[in-house]
Design a protein around this nucleic acid. Sequence first.
DNA 1: GACACATTTCTATATTTATGGAAATATAGA
DNA 2: TCTATATTTCCATAAATATAGAAATGTGTC
Lengths: 110, 110
Amino acid sequence: MNHTLAVTQLSSIANEARLAIFRLLVQAGVNGLAAGSISEKLAIPNSTLSFHLKELSHAGLINAQQQSRYIYYSANYETMNSLLAYLTENCCAGEQDCCTTTICNTQNEE
Amino acid sequence: MNHTLAVTQLSSIANEARLAIFRLLVQAGVNGLAAGSISEKLAIPNSTLSFHLKELSHAGLINAQQQSRYIYYSANYETMNSLLAYLTENCCAGEQDCCTTTICNTQNEE
DNA sequence: GACACATTTCTATATTTATGGAAATATAGA
DNA sequence: TCTATATTTCCATAAATATAGAAATGTGTC
């Protein structure tokens, strides 16, 4: 993990709409959701959603996969893990078990 | 944890200077560091640092404690934990052990 | 009170970011 | 090819954020 990248990733979820999108996808699991489905669930206009999806995607926090006419977006759990690990890295000077930094294990890496 | 608060907290660390400050304090442990010490270590001008410390403080991610002429800033581990937990909440629809969400235990709550 | 030191507030400026309608692009089926 | 559906790009505008010098405030010591 690199500082600038971490800032980019944090910026990408430091927004009401994008945080909602990201959490929705984190909860949706590996298959993710189609853009239209996200737009509907969160009541975000298409063009606005597209802008936000691009931000998240560019930051590497979500992945896009085209399937027929739909584009499925899903959370990138590995990236999320790296980011959270960066935040808690060497927590409390490594003393104590202050930070038992283990979070999300990618469930299947095909 | 509430959505708006999470956005505020993420925004507060979604900045190069503030992320550096926050990580420095996370690593410094419960005693924290005086403002002048942070300014020196990170080469950030006083007025700029003060602005950033206020942002982090306002978001609840760091605490301030005056001690004589110095003001010591320290990471608020509980807030950090809540935030990270919010991000990974109900990860992968609760199936699998995809997200073993446990992170940082506050080391001493006096 | 006078002085040094630590930190914050004030201020103006520069930069980045968010919004959503309208038009454009892409995909698929008849 | 025509039509419907899904998504993105373009664009202008509005709003929020970052920067750091200078002045102000607070704290301790003599």
